[in-house]
């Protein structure tokens, strides 16, 4: 049985841990609220844009725009969206699992320190790594996307895919691989999007011929890059919401564990104290008995 002093020391250290995790939980909770808000409010926009694109894509030949052409895939381009800091449960590990399943040659782009560390450690071909602030300014994501799109049009990579934790709710974040370019299966993707947002944004079917102003080509040229930027931006927002949710849940678990441990330790401490007192009384009584 450890001495009362040892137990007292442990109690103190566990208490400190609990205090820290509690503070971190609160911080994550407030950040989570903002991030979730941002991720959810952007969804109608993304859905509408996808629906516009689908009506566009259904009416044009795929050779009209480089983003529509499906090339034989030699090198995949993968954007891995992770967190900068740890302590967020299995969030990053789940993403890394998806990455290790990729056997084809691929070039990687990382958002978040954890991701770039992982890619460097596993000696994968990392082209660039970025960090994005918590508030996710559109400009930061845009410069990342522009680099990827540039490599895509140059033929350095043949796809653009994003690996990110999709935000479902506070408790559930599912790691996903989302293909962004080339654009295919748009209909399927929109149906999925409408599903996941619960909105009735099903693509409007209108078979009549569609007019494009100022013309098909300019509209395509304007909408395509815009769509890619916005879409990836939305994915990053979703990843941020996931990060803070996961961190909050992880911290809450840690706090609860610390509380349980503290209860057990307090019990042990009281037991030890009690037995020490009993021991002392016994000794005094024995001493008195011997002298009398």
């Amino acid at each position: 049985m450890p001495s009362t002093r040892d137990i007292r020391r442990r109690i103190k250290s566990v208490k400190n841990t609990r205090q820290i995790t509690k503070a971190m939980e609160l911080v994550a909770a407030s950040k989570m609220k903002k991030a979730q808000q941002a991720a959810l409010s952007g969804r109608p926009y993304a859905t509408l844009m996808a629906s516009m694109l689908s009506s566009l894509a259904a009416r044009v030949d795929e050779s009209q725009h480089p983003f529509l052409v499906e090339r034989p895939v030699k090198t995949r381009g993968i954007l891995l969206v992770t967190t900068d800091k740890g302590l967020c449960g299995p969030l990053n590990a789940n993403l890394f699992k998806l990455v290790t399943e990729i056997k084809e040659p691929a070039k990687y782009y990382a958002i978040g320190r954890k991701g770039s560390q992982f890619l460097a450690r596993t000696k994968r071909d990392m082209v660039a790594s970025f960090q994005v602030h918590d508030r996710v300014p559109f400009g930061e994501v845009r410069s990342i996307v522009e680099l990827m799109v540039k490599n895509f049009t140059e033929g350095l990579i043949d796809t653009i895919e994003v690996i990110y934790p999709r935000f479902t709710n506070t408790l559930i974040q599912t790691p996903r691989v989302r293909p962004v370019l080339p654009l295919r299966n748009l209909k399927e993707f929109i149906a999925h999007l409408a599903d996941s947002t619960g909105s009735s944004q099903a693509p409007i079917s209108d078979d009549r011929e569609m007019l494009f102003e100022p013309g098909l080509r300019p509209v395509l040229d304007a909408l395509m890059p815009f769509y890619v930027n916005r879409h990836i931006f939305q994915l990053v927002l979703s990843a941020k919401a996931s990060e803070h949710s996961a961190r909050m849940v992880a911290m809450k678990t840690a706090k609860d564990n610390a509380s349980n441990l503290l209860d057990d330790l307090t019990l042990d401490y009281n037991k030890a104290r009690q037995s020490a007192i009993t021991q002392e009384i016994l000794e005094i009584a024995a001493a008195q008995f011997a002298t009398s």
């Binding site: 011929e209 007019l211 102003e213 509209v219």
Partner: peptide, 10 residues
């Protein structure tokens, strides 16, 4: 107006 031809514009 209602009944407009399908259109996508900037």
């Amino acid at each position: 107006l209602p009944g407009h031809i399908p259109l996508l514009t900037q």
